[in-house]
Write a protein that binds this DNA or RNA. Structure first.
Length: 227
DNA sequence: CCGACAAGGTCTACC
DNA sequence: TGGTAGACCTTGTCG
């Protein structure tokens, strides 16, 4: 347990800077760009809905792929995200070397159609005036391809904090520290919420904020502070 | 060189 | 109703 605190002290600065990036994303007109294996925030002249939809798409791409692969993929499809057909999106994903071009192109396309038709694309209004957990439920229930892990990831990336991102690295760490009995193959809603509470306890014990702890643990398994 | 395996999960079908 | 095997799929790394 103690080495988490020690590592946190070492990485505190970069972790907080990344958390600040997520907050910036919420309030400023910036988008993520991934090049030369580095991520940075830049102004691309996009409105909130485009930027947020881009982040949603990124999270739809991220499930069961490497972080680098999904970032490379999102850079390839960015120009056609708001207008491309399933076939066009799929083609761009194939060009980028992405693993699941067909299914994920479908998910992105369906998400875009649904948000446009049923919610007039105003994604921020779906987030504001709503509890973070409620918002997550909404996205999980309404966006095909987005489960609890990726919905939490999406919200964290756009500056909505306080949700646990229970990926295999976090779950393994929790298992290693006897916070959970076994290493779950899959999580339903009930189980996800249970383990999320345990992650909060973990965060309290270490006295490290949940969102910071997520970045810390992930980086300790992968050597990097990503997003 | 080549087979095995892992890379920020989620959906569907079936029991 | 709740649980899980199989599909999705390509690239890079390791022995």
């Amino acid at each position: 347990m103690e080495h988490y605190k020690e590592t946190y002290e070492i990485k505190k600065k970069i972790i907080n800077s990344r958390l600040n990036d997520f907050k910036r994303f919420y309030s400023e007109p910036v988008s993520w760009v991934f090049s030369n294996n580095k991520m940075k925030l830049v102004e691309l002249g996009k409105n909130d809905n485009e930027r947020i939809f881009e982040e949603l798409s990124f999270c739809l791409l991220t499930a069961n792929t490497s972080a680098a692969m999904s970032m490379k993929a999102i850079d390839h499809i960015r120009p056609i995200l708001t207008k491309g057909s399933i076939q066009e999106l799929s083609k761009k994903l194939i060009e980028s070397g992405y693993r699941f071009p067909n299914k994920r192109a479908e998910y992105i396309f369906e998400a875009r159609e649904k948000l446009q038709k049923e919610h007039n694309v105003d994604i921020k209004s779906l987030i504001e005036n709503r509890d973070a957990k409620e918002t997550r439920d909404f996205f999980v229930d309404n966006i095909k391809g987005l489960g609890y892990k990726e919905a939490s990831h999406f919200l964290r990336n756009i500056g909505v904090f306080g949700l646990a991102i229970l990926d295999k690295h976090i779950l393994r760490t929790m298992h290693e520290n006897n916070m959970i009995e076994d290493f779950p193959k899959s999580l339903n809603r009930k189980r996800y919420l249970e383990i999320e509470e345990k992650f909060k306890e973990f965060s309290d014990i270490l006295n490290i904020d949940m969102d910071a702890l997520d970045l810390l643990l992930w980086s300790m398994k992968n050597g990097e502070i990503m997003k």
